[in-house]
Design a protein around this nucleic acid. Structure first.
Lengths: 236, 236
DNA sequence: TGAACACGTTTTGTATGCAATATGTATTTT
DNA sequence: AAAATACATATTGCATACAAAACGTGTTCA
């Protein structure tokens, strides 16, 4: 039987991961070895190994003889992101549709159900994490070791970008997120039907929707304004 | 001024990397911490960090409470590889053509000159490493953090696959490698001209040639044989 | 006043020793 | 004789101590 009590090392690894994904640890934040090892109850040696691992996965940046930092989100991030994401995710969903096992499809459905639940009664944090989990599973389904590294890297910043460009009280934003959930259902259907083309097309749609959410954030009043008019409401 | 003497840690990292790329350390080989730390003159603590880093980059696999191993090449590797490689490399070269700086182009030309040199008088090992360096530079040119992880992962197994499916005495193989070098020149030209479409197309060609080399290896006599006849010459 | 320098403090990097886990072998048991 | 088990050995994981590098601060000197 599998070990029921996770090691402090795993706990630390998971905690840092989710903290970074949810922006509780902001991009560029310093990660002090001493304080972290104290916080998670392990010595600096295993903590450093956790940081090395997180660095390899793209969560943090290491600098020689300096502290570790949460990996940055620069101004070029968005452009690079939306260049790479549709291609990679298209390929992932195509392969997922071709290779998914029934057990994996079941897991994806369960996750989607949870996603719908936190969509109604969860925090922005919960939504980002559950959405992240949904996409991670599609990555497992694809099962191509060469695509996964970039896909995982994309998922990290996808979560962080979503957390950044999200205004919970905005009605248009709420509709947008609802559409995202609907797309998840369509993705599941396409995978279950083994329809690779459909799945790939849905991947593109999904990123277009994500891009649209950012536009909603930047231009909250929409585009129905006289040219040059100031934005209507900038709440946060 | 930059440090002239590399640390034993860096030496160890580089040595393991090249040993894995060139199959001096074969896929699945056990990496014992004690003997490695002795060999490179550092204690187990920094060595373990090197192994963690190599794991993150896809060179080795770590297993809980077991030794590290050189990452495996399974029977599904080739298929997954040739599925992902054209897409990723096409995107990399497209971006390289769009973003390459003059300094980077100069570096690429230098590397290509060295590649041509080892093609004539170097070992198979030297060729694989120099070819690897050539492609790494195109990755730097593209400069997209989301594509690089998968690209680097591809380059590792590209080197290893090349080392596996390479028969130096085979005349057809020699022609094939010569063609690869010519393609490198074309790639440089496309990048220098900023011709993204051309560069992307060349990426596809380059993988097709690589695939062809594998076919040459598996079927050394070619296909001009009566059906069911045994292969003509299987030297190595 | 400003810049450079020296020193003390803080933080990262490395080595070593010990604990925990896995592996191999011999012994016991059926 | 085969399988299971107990024990010895080897190897990985972790904690602590020390070394080295970076950082902040105060002083000195132009």
């Amino acid at each position: 039987m599998p070990d029921s009590t996770p090691s402090p090392k795993d706990t630390c690894y998971q905690a840092l991961k989710t903290a970074i994904l949810t922006l509780e640890l902001q991009p560029g934040a310093d990660l002090d070895e001493a304080s972290l090892s104290a916080e998670f109850g392990l010595s600096r040696t295993p903590l450093r190994e956790v940081l090395r691992r997180l660095a390899g996965e793209g969560y943090v940046d290491l600098r020689q003889n300096r502290g570790a930092r949460v990996s940055e989100m620069s101004h070029t991030t968005l452009r690079d992101f939306f260049l790479a994401a549709p291609m990679i995710y298209g390929a992932i969903l195509r392969l997922a549709a071709e290779n998914a096992t029934p057990a994996q499809i079941e897991k994806l459905k369960t996750t989607q159900a949870r996603f719908r639940k936190v969509l109604q009664q969860g925090s922005a944090r919960d939504r980002a994490l559950m959405n992240n989990r949904f996409h991670e599973i599609t990555g497992e389904m694809a099962g191509n070791v060469y695509l996964l590294p970039s896909f995982q890297r994309l998922l990290i910043d996808h979560a962080r970008i979503s957390m950044t460009f999200y205004r919970p009280r905005d009605e248009a934003m709420a509709r947008n997120v609802g559409e995202a959930a609907d797309q998840h259902d369509q993705i599941i259907a396409a995978i279950e039907a083994g329809d690779a083309d459909k799945a790939a097309a849905l991947a593109i749609d999904h990123w277009n929707l994500s891009r649209h959410r950012i536009e909603l954030f930047v231009m909250p009043g929409g585009l129905d304004l006289p040219l040059g008019a100031p934005p209507r409401a900038v709440t946060a």
